[in-house]
């Protein structure tokens, strides 16, 4: 029985928070709570999710203003102690802005907002996020972003690859991301950022369950 206690951070402008809550609470069946961004504490949560959306209207740069929300200093402390943090889409942008993950996400190469189902390759399945997938397995997840073009310098890219930090790549790069990167973990392997939305691919009635294995895998990694 998992003792996961999931905290979903809600910023002004988050819009995937309720979907993510639904999957953890009702589909996977673990203790799940919303945490308002002005909260000073993560309470007893042992998994933190930064959900998709448009925190602070994406003003200035995506995620730039959210990184100074009151809860963020607590999340940085939690993450640096090894706490599990996942940033999905806008959450990934916030994690890059705070420096918890390397690199940055800029405007898609073709400038358009892309809402599509894309094929991803699992590049590393020895992580708390991906162990329910096969190595090199191809899965389909939805993306919905205007700024999902992952950029980093060539030294960082070599490190990401050398340390097996890249967990998901696009088989057909939709947005110009460096190294076709769709999702990566930090060096300490407790923080994941990804642009695709696993929470939108978690119920067979919605036609796709490729995402549930990621979220279930994380929930069950907490014993």
């Amino acid at each position: 029985m998992s003792t996961a206690k999931v905290g979903i951070i809600v910023f002004p402008g988050s819009n995937c928070d309720a979907d993510t809550y639904h999957v953890f609470n009702n589909i996977i069946g673990v203790d799940t709570k919303f945490i308002w961004h002005k909260s000073a504490t993560l309470e007893d949560r042992n998994i933190v999710i930064l959900p998709g959306g448009f925190s602070y209207g994406d003003y200035l740069r995506c995620g730039a203003i959210a990184k100074f929300s009151p809860i963020m200093s607590e999340i940085i402390r939690f993450a640096q102690k090894g706490g599990i943090v996942i940033g999905i889409c806008n959450g990934f942008q916030v994690l890059c802005e705070t420096g918890l993950l390397p690199g940055a996400l800029i405007r898609n190469r073709m400038l358009k907002f892309i809402c599509d189902l894309v094929t991803l390759k699992v590049e590393n399945n020895k992580s708390i996020f991906t162990s329910y997938y096969e190595i090199k397995e191809e899965i389909k997840l939805p993306i919905a972003h205007g700024e999902g073009n992952y950029v980093c310098d060539s030294d960082t890219l070599s490190e990401l690859i050398g340390n097996n930090q890249v967990l998901f790549t696009y088989t057909e790069n939709p947005n110009g991301s460096t190294g076709n990167i769709a999702g990566l973990q930090n060096v300490s392997r407790n923080i994941l950022g990804l642009m695709p939305h696993p929470e939108r691919a978690s119920e067979s009635i919605l036609g796709n369950t490729d995402g549930i294995r990621l979220l279930r895998c994380v929930a069950e990694s907490v014993i």
Binding site: R61, E97, I106, C152
Partner: peptide
Amino acid sequence: KLLSNPVM
């Protein structure tokens, strides 16, 4: 701290 991101 805020107006620019040194990565880009």
